[in-house]
Simulated assay, not measured.
Amino acid sequence: MTTIIDVAKQAQVSKSTVSRVISGNGYVSQESRKKVLEAMEALSYSPNLIARNLQSGETKTIGFLAQGFIDPLGIFLESFISIAKRYNYYVTLYFTDGDKKKEIDALNQMKYKQLDGVFILTRANKWEIIEPYSLYGPIATWHRIDSERIYSSYVDHYSGYLRSLNYLYDRGYRSIGHVLGNSENLNTKARIKAIDDFQQDKNIPIKEEWLFHDRARLDNGRNIAHTWHKMANKSDAMAFYTDSVAAGFISELQNLGYSVPEDVAVIGFDNSEISRLMHITTVDYSIKRQAQNSFIYIHNQLNRETIAEQEMSVQLIERKTVPLRKKELDKNASSSENN
């Protein structure tokens, strides 16, 4: 079997020069690089990456785990890959399809020195199952979790959701429906607290029929549209935990003969590409910086560095799906004057 020594002899350079050409690290003159590449081609030499990784203890590769495609995936993955490239890391995407074994197989790649670290966008296993794998490499996520072994780049969804509800109220909306994520998710619990505090502050009761919990995302916007259509007492605004479900809701309502925002106002959450395409008013909670901070954590852990994380913020992005309800505001103002 051809070795690096054979390549060095063929190219008439040192073994270290061949090593620098293969790794891409260190200076090699153009003439020497050309000799090495020609020698590798002549000898049909292929670097033994597994052996080299075992020797160095690193692969320069981060695993990116997701159950499948969700709306924020494109933004998050693009930002994660971009900053990883800046620091000379590769990113390998694993779609687990919600299969717990597939997720464990991916996490085991750190144990077998095939990955240096892992980022989890969406998980299949419980966190207590995932946590022990941090022994083999750093693990980061954007989920809000309380763990000393897994880094979380979460943004406070309480303040973001409360801001969206206050925005709807200030625009004249009083009957507001809520589409929330998995009830076990800490971000969902933060939104529920925001709803409770909003209701107490504004003295606005919520009807149970206006509260939805979405577990699968797939087609749920359409299903919620049909439920809303059948309601005798419809909400005049709907607040969604993600833009993709909001988009599905709007699209299906149009098929049912309704018009958004004339018949119902809609506000999303993510500021994803679909919200821009459909002009959905939404909340931007720094997805790009969540991705960047997740990589920075992994990089710092692997290299014992202290690169500063990016500051994150929550912003409301006004578009076309939450118009000002002037009549409602005028009526409330008149009532206050009479009192």
Results as ranks from 00 to 15, higher is better:
residue 251 S to H: 14
residue 274 I to Y: 05
residue 287 I to H: 09
residue 223 N to D: 11
residue 236 D to E: 15
residue 279 H to W: 10
residue 254 Q to S: 08
residue 231 M to V: 00
residue 241 Y to W: 10
residue 219 D to H: 13
residue 279 H to Q: 15
residue 294 S to C: 12
residue 220 N to H: 11
residue 216 A to M: 04
residue 256 L to S: 13
residue 231 M to G: 00
residue 247 A to D: 14
residue 291 A to G: 05
residue 238 M to A: 01
residue 287 I to K: 04
residue 243 D to E: 03
residue 248 G to M: 07
residue 235 S to M: 13
residue 277 L to Q: 12
residue 243 D to V: 01
residue 227 T to C: 04
residue 266 V to L: 05
residue 239 A to T: 02
residue 294 S to N: 05
residue 293 N to S: 03
residue 275 S to D: 04
residue 231 M to S: 07
residue 216 A to N: 14
residue 225 A to H: 11
residue 229 H to M: 09
residue 266 V to P: 06
residue 295 F to P: 01
residue 260 V to L: 07
residue 271 N to D: 15
residue 248 G to T: 08
residue 218 L to D: 10
residue 280 I to L: 08
residue 294 S to F: 02
residue 292 Q to M: 09
residue 234 K to I: 03
residue 230 K to R: 12
residue 243 D to H: 03
residue 294 S to L: 02
residue 226 H to Y: 08
residue 225 A to G: 02
residue 259 S to F: 05
residue 262 E to L: 04
residue 276 R to V: 08
residue 224 I to M: 09
residue 279 H to T: 12
residue 265 A to Y: 01
residue 219 D to G: 01
residue 225 A to F: 07
residue 234 K to L: 00
residue 257 G to A: 10
residue 228 W to R: 04
residue 239 A to W: 03
residue 216 A to K: 08
residue 218 L to F: 11
residue 246 A to M: 08
residue 282 T to D: 13
residue 240 F to S: 02
residue 260 V to S: 05
residue 281 T to Y: 09
residue 222 R to W: 06
residue 278 M to F: 11
residue 278 M to L: 15
residue 238 M to D: 06
residue 294 S to E: 07
residue 245 V to L: 03
residue 273 E to R: 15
residue 214 D to T: 15
residue 222 R to C: 06
residue 292 Q to Y: 14
residue 245 V to M: 04
residue 284 D to R: 01
residue 221 G to R: 10
residue 278 M to Y: 13
residue 261 P to N: 06
residue 276 R to C: 12
residue 221 G to P: 06
residue 217 R to N: 08
